[in-house]
Design a protein around this nucleic acid. Structure first.
Length: 278
DNA sequence: TTCCAGGTGGCAT
DNA sequence: ATGCCACATGGA
């Protein structure tokens, strides 16, 4: 059990990073630290006064990359607040420690196919159960066993009956078909999967945008879901079905960091509506 | 009971 | 190109 200590970490908050809907496999412990699994490595993270302590498996380089510690988020926040001074500053203040993780592509494909027409607690439950019955055992931490997300080969070999305990609903067939498509793409020599995301079964415009943002770290990608429609209406006056208008606005005002802007705003409006339900 | 959740695919205009 | 609607599941 190694312990990694990283000091002088800025623009960083574990809850805002792990509980903002970009990932689904990290959970808060009673002591305020977070435990979870990524890239097959199990770890616990605690953060206090600019010092990040990571215990478990995986080396420092791996976690630095995953947490995107090489990027200056302060610079991006200043850029966004300057480009859109009306609602961006309070949104940034609400989630000043948000970062976009560098997650594995295949996992985000699985995650966001499951996310469609679903809510975050149930998405987490489905992914947990999927890993438990189809993934590889990855280790134990604080009395809890962790399992990795199944590889495409594994998932492609499963039937809907096999996946029934995961309670995926109608999404089970999308996962299986996507795994099979993924395999055949690999077998036909496709190396750049980023061109193949659109067109996978169960992947429409919104899921594709999430995969680009969270799985390919394309910070310009701007996913539009029910919450974003709500906020674009409330903050900027858009009709809720004017997706094109919202995309143009995001590109114009948030530019290459539209996806990060989306995360600040998404987090912000959820904070508001959780506290004061309409 | 009905509505909703980080929507998509299929089918009808 | 745009507008409906069924789709599984579980919590409010």
């Amino acid at each position: 059990m190694t312990e990694i200590v990283i000091e002088n970490v800025k623009d960083f908050n574990l809850r805002e990073i792990f509980d903002c809907g970009q990932c689904f496999r990290w959970n808060e412990e009673d002591d305020g630290s977070y435990s979870g699994i990524a890239m097959g490595k199990v770890a616990n993270m605690r953060f206090d006064g600019g010092t990040l302590v990571i215990s478990g498996t995986g080396d420092e380089a791996l976690w630095r990359d995953y947490l995107d510690l090489g990027r200056d988020y302060g610079e991006i926040k200043a850029f966004l607040a300057e480009k859109e001074p009306r609602h961006m500053p309070p949104a940034i203040a609400d989630g000043a420690g948000i970062r976009i993780l560098r997650q594995e592509l295949w996992e985000t494909v699985i995650d966001f196919i499951i996310s469609q027409n679903n809510n975050i607690p149930r998405i987490k439950g489905c992914i947990e159960k999927l890993a438990e019955i189809t993934g590889e055992y990855a280790g134990e931490l604080r009395g809890k066993k962790y399992y990795s997300i199944p590889e495409p080969e594994k998932l492609a070999s499963m039937s809907r009956e096999d996946l029934a305990p995961v309670r995926l609903g109608y999404r089970d067939k999308y996962l299986i078909e996507t795994a099979r498509r993924w395999l055949s793409l690999e077998e036909s020599g496709v190396t750049n999967m980023s061109d193949e995301i659109a067109g996978l079964p169960g992947v429409g415009p919104k899921v594709e945008a999430c995969i680009r943002l969270f799985g390919l770290h394309d910070l310009a990608s701007f996913p539009i879901d029910v919450w974003v429609k709500r906020l674009m209406n409330r903050f900027y006056g858009f009709d809720e079905n004017d997706k094109k208008g919202m995309e143009d606005f995001a590109a114009e005002h948030f530019g290459e960091y539209a996806g990060l802007a989306q995360q600040y705003l998404f987090n912000h409006i959820r904070q508001i509506d959780m506290k004061t339900p309409v």
